[in-house]
């Protein structure tokens, strides 16, 4: 497949670098201001080196990407809330041109799922978004394999930053502010950690899961979301005395989405440590399935994008 990659952050860059290994060609990569395009297969290395050095990716305009011959648009621009722009417009343009779309961007899938599916129905192209939930961990493809109707609920630890903070607080007895500063030094937390520690990121992933289970109708405003800022070390201590710990757990069911700090068995599956993620897929006929692994990171998320590309049918 010929890939056009929108977004030149960690995920977009890693998709571009790994595409060949997965048997695909990148014909374009763009950030918000510039693009590097070659319909015959882009030699991406010079563009990525230029970007890394602070120079423009290439001489083309990002809008030129849509005039290029490609098969799959990889939408890896930053997640935005509300109208999910500009990601949503990128997806619309690709689908209207009968191209496939693979998203790593959570915004359009969480906030405008029904619009997205409507565009897909009218297009020869398909939409996939494994990378938007749980990074490298195969979650949506597992649900797809089980058939969504046979899945009762999906629960999990879906934010590595919040999990890192809770894990360190429990292990060291340190308070939230202290551990957050450490996480920022290590690059585990952003300078503005709001999105992660207030549960928004985990909630977006759960909203996507709830949309898949319910065939749409859910957005972030429907989710009940509590973050971890108010969890003191003393709460983790009390949990530990009882053989438990606290994790920021997201739950997606057909009844809705909840994200909040929850008590889980200290040695149970949900109590993954550090930046690890885990999901529990509660099925009707097969009990619970668990998958854990890296829920974020450029190459990790890129593998989910490229696996999606591999699952797309030929257009025609």
């Amino acid at each position: 497949m010929r890939l056009a990659v929108l977004g030149a952050g960690a995920v977009g860059v890693a998709v571009t670098e790994l595409a060949e290994e997965y048997g695909h060609d990148v014909v374009a990569i763009a950030d918000s201001t510039h693009a590097a395009i070659d319909e015959h297969g882009l030699d991406a290395a010079p563009a990525l080196e230029a970007k890394a050095a602070g120079d423009p990716l290439g001489s083309a305009h990002p809008a030129d990407v849509f005039e290029t011959e490609y098969d799959v648009l990889v939408e890896a621009t930053p997640t935005t809330l509300g109208d999910a722009e500009p990601g949503f417009t990128h997806v619309r343009r690709a689908l209207e041109a009968d191209r496939h779309v693979v998203l790593a961007n959570k915004g359009p899938v969480a906030e405008r799922y029904d619009d997205l599916r409507m565009l897909e129905r009218e297009s020869a192209g398909s939409v996939r978004f494994e990378a938007a939930v749980g990074g490298a961990i195969p979650i949506l493809s597992t649900i797809e394999d089980c058939t969504p109707a046979a899945v009762r609920a999906v629960r999990g630890v879906l934010n590595g930053t919040a999990n890192f903070i809770l894990t360190r607080m429990a292990a060291e007895g340190l308070d939230y502010e202290h551990v957050l500063a450490e996480a920022q030094d290590l690059g585990v937390a952003e300078a503005d950690p709001t999105f992660d520690v207030d549960g928004t990121d985990a909630a977006l992933k759960c909203v996507i899961l709830a949309n898949v289970l319910s065939e749409g109708g859910v957005s972030l405003s429907d989710a009940d979301v509590v973050g971890i800022r108010n969890v003191p070390p003393s709460a983790l201590d009390l949990a530990a005395e009882d053989g438990k710990t606290i994790r920021l757990v997201g739950e997606a069911t057909r009844d809705g989405v909840r994200v909040g700090p929850r008590l889980v068995p200290e040695n149970g599956a949900m109590a993954v440590s550090g930046t690890q993620n885990i999901v529990q897929i509660q099925t009707r006929h097969a009990g619970d399935l668990y998958s854990s692994g890296r829920g974020a990171g450029g190459p990790e998320t890129a593998t989910a994008v490229l696996s999606d590309v591999g699952r797309l049918p030929p257009i025609g």
Partner: peptide, 12 residues
């Protein structure tokens, strides 16, 4: 108050 509930549902 912040209520930290146990995770119920599933096998866990």
């Amino acid at each position: 108050l912040c209520l930290v509930e146990p995770l119920v549902g599933g096998d866990a």
